[in-house]
Amino acid sequence: MRIRLILRRISFLIMVIWAASTITFFIPRLSDRNPIRERFAELARTGGFSASDLETIVASYNKKFGLDKPLLEQYTDYIGSIAQLDLGVSLNRFPKTVLEIVMESLPWTIALLFVSSILSFIIGNLLGAIAAWPKSPSWMRSIATPFVLFMGVPPVLLAIFLLFLLAFKLKLFPLGQAYSTGIAPDWTISFLLNVMWHQMLPAISLILGSVGGWVLSMRGMGVTIQGEDYVNFAEHKGLQGGVIFRDYYLRNAMLPQVTGFALALGSIITSGAVVEGLYALPGLGSKLSQAISSNDFLVIYGIVLFITMSVATLMVLVEFLYPLLDPRIKTD
């Protein structure tokens, strides 16, 4: 039974990745924009070579990348290379592959998004559970309200306001970049502190922007659990409030929240990418917006595909985690 479930999820994952890569393959080819021609036309304009050589160069590059083959053959080649995690090469920094660019920026993105999304998940769920718990003191319940107000505001906008207030007006934080200019990256304490100081604003804006959602859904979940028989039973058994809160209430209300976390992964990464671009942090998001502004199409497509694949994979992984949290699923 379990094996069949796992196989089904994995084949679903493969379907999702196939769909994403098919979309990224065909959409650019539907338009009449030719990335290579545009790139070299730009170089020709800025004065690298004469425009008459342009066609020869484009033709030779088309041949090199296999763009002169029939579409179907290109497609099978493309899917084959995706299966080997080969995401192509950068047009602007030619010998560099997209995977290399992704790998050098990935640690930054993972560090920022991992810390901020886990923190916001924990804070939001705790606040939401407290807000719904009838025995919690009223001042603790009211903490949650301001976070809910931020819910409709995307993290990027919060980031702009934080930049204005804390970095521009009060000068408490830097206006961008991952570390101060002039210091070399190494593993010393002072450098790490410098990096953390620079990551504070992006992390705060990502956390503030997403806590409200967790608060609301957890509060809704908590309200429905209050009337459940097992909670009443635990109360009548004379269990202490803290034990009921932790083991009977929080534990059960958490389960759908984990699914919610898996579903939110896409928007977490999306807003993370945009916020990174705004603060000019060296993560995937900045690489993506640099590629967009310099028309480096293969990098755009590669990064998009990489993000899509990782979101889909993470979603399936979280689903596999689910039986560990909910013993009822295992016995079924």
Binding site: F12, M15, V16, A19, A20, I23, T24, I27, P28, L30, S31, R33, G266, S267, I269, T270, L288, I292, F297, I300, Y301, V304, I307, T308, V311, A312, M315
Partner: peptide
């Protein structure tokens, strides 16, 4: 719908928008 749901919509929108002139 199920297959498209896990794909971050914004990423695909970037592809479409950047392939347009």
């Amino acid at each position: 719908c199920q297959i498209l749901t896990p794909i971050p919509v914004f990423m695909i929108q970037i592809i479409i928008a950047s392939s347009l002139d």
